[in-house]
C-alpha cells in the first residue's frame, strides 16, 4: 500500500518508544501495573494479550491520548504529544474515527491540512488504492475500504512510528497479506511498527518481536519462537531401545527438563532445553526417529496469560 520513503532515522540510540515503570489506574482499577518497554527504530513489534490486558491503555499512553498515572512515556526522545504534533507518530484505530458524511478525498484532505509536512493527497489516495472511490461518502465504503482510508490518513505525515490497533479486522485473507507485505516493506525502510492483534498467527508471522501482556504487565518479550519455548518449552520424542532407569535419571538431570514420559520404546521429554536433550539422546543412547515439536503460539499464549485456568 505504501511507497513512501520513510523518515530517515535520528541517532540510532534514540528509542522509537520508551516506557519506564508506566502505570495507569482508573479509579481503583489498575489497568497497567508497571510496564518497561524499549522499542528500537525499525522494529516490527506485536502487542499481544487478551481483552482487558492493558494493550489499548498502553497504546493510548504512547499516543499521548492519556497520561501515565506514574512513570514516563517517550516517543523518539520526545513526549508523546510533542511527537504527535511533529507528525512523528500515527495510528490506525480499529473502528470509528471517520465521519460518514465526508467523502474519502475530503477526509484525507482534512487530515493532510493539519500537518506541517505531508505527502500530496492524490499520492496518498493512490498508494492506499482508494483513488477510484475518492468521491464516495465514507458511510458508503466497505469495512476494508474504510480501513485503507485510515491507513492512508496515518501515512500522510510519513510517521517514524506507526501504531496499529487490530489493523486487519474485517479484511479478507488476500487483503491481510497485501497489508502486511506493505507494512513489512515500510519497516525495512526504517519505520517502526507496533501492532496490537488477536490473530496470534499474525503476530508470529509478521512481527520481529512479540510483547505479551496480561493483567497490566508484560509476561513475555521475545521472538515468536522464543515465546513458544518460554511458554512450555518443546517436546522431544524418540524411540529408544533399552532405555533403563539409569538413563532416565541422567535424562531428568539435564537442565530444563520438566517431564519425562516413557511409553515402551517411545520416550517423550518436555523441556525448555530441547537441544541438550536431543544431543544427549543421540549421543548417549540408541535413540532414533528423533522429533522436536513446539507448542503453537495459541497454546503458548494461553499458558502464559493464564487464560487456560
Amino acid at each position: 500500500m505504501s511507497v513512501v520513503t520513510p523518515a530517515r532515522t535520528t541517532a540510532p540510540a534514540t528509542s522509537a518508544v520508551r516506557l519506564d515503570a508506566v502505570t495507569k489506574s482508573f479509579g481503583h482499577v489498575e489497568a497497567v501495573r508497571g510496564i518497561d518497554l524499549d522499542l528500537a527504530q525499525g522494529e516490527v513489534v506485536a502487542f499481544l494479550g487478551p481483552n482487558g490486558a492493558g494493550k489499548t491503555t498502553t497504546i493510548d499512553m504512547v499516543l499521548g491520548l492519556s497520561r501515565p498515572t506514574t512513570g514516563t512515556a517517550q516517543v523518539l526522545g520526545r513526549t508523546p504529544r510533542d511527537a504527535v504534533a511533529h507528525g512523528l507518530v500515527s495510528a490506525v484505530m480499529q473502528t470509528g474515527g471517520l465521519l460518514k458524511d465526508m467523502t474519502v478525498r475530503e477526509t484525507v484532505e482534512y487530515t493532510a491540512s493539519l500537518f506541517a509536512d505531508t505527502m500530496p493527497v492524490d499520492e496518498a489516495l493512490r498508494d492506499a488504492g482508494i483513488e477510484a472511490i475518492a468521491g464516495r461518502k465514507v458511510g458508503k465504503c466497505s469495512g476494508g475500504e474504510q480501513q485503507r482510508l485510515r491507513f492512508a490518513m496515518a501515512l500522510l505525515p510519513d510517521p517514524a512510528l506507526l501504531l496499529l490497533d487490530e489493523p486487519t479486522t474485517g479484511m479478507d485473507v488476500e487483503g491481510r497479506r497485501t497489508f502486511w507485505n506493505a507494512v513489512r516493506a515500510d519497516a525495512e525502510r526504517g519505520r517502526t511498527v507496533m501492532f496490537a492483534t488477536h490473530y496470534l498467527e499474525e503476530a508470529d508471522q509478521y512481527a520481529d518481536r512479540i510483547v505479551l501482556i496480561a493483567n497490566g504487565r508484560i509476561v513475555a518479550d521475545g521472538t515468536g519462537s522464543e515465546i513458544r519455548a518460554l511458554a512450555a518449552g518443546r517436546t522431544v520424542r524418540a524411540s529408544v531401545t533399552g532405555f533403563g532407569a539409569e538413563t532416565e535419571a541422567r535424562l531428568r538431570a539435564i537442565d530444563g527438563v520438566d517431564a519425562v514420559d516413557v511409553r515402551g520404546e517411545q520416550i517423550l521429554v518436555h523441556t525448555t532445553e530441547s537441544d541438550a536433550v536431543a544431543r544427549f539422546l543421540l549421543t548417549e543412547t540408541a535413540a532414533r526417529d528423533l522429533e522436536i515439536t513446539s507448542k503453537n503460539l495459541e497454546e503458548a499464549f494461553l499458558s502464559l496469560t493464564g487464560e487456560d485456568q
Binding site: 520513503t5 520513510p6 523518515a7 506541517a116 509536512d117 510519513d158
Partner: peptide, 23 residues
C-alpha cells in the same frame, strides 16, 4: 511513484496556528 523526500525526524515542524487552516 514520485519519491517523497521527507525531512529527518529532528527537522520535523509543527503546523502554524495549532493546525487552524482554510482547508
Amino acid at each position: 511513484m514520485s519519491p517523497v523526500s521527507m525531512s529527518p525526524v529532528a527537522d520535523r515542524r509543527t503546523p502554524p496556528l495549532g493546525g487552524f487552516n482554510l482547508t
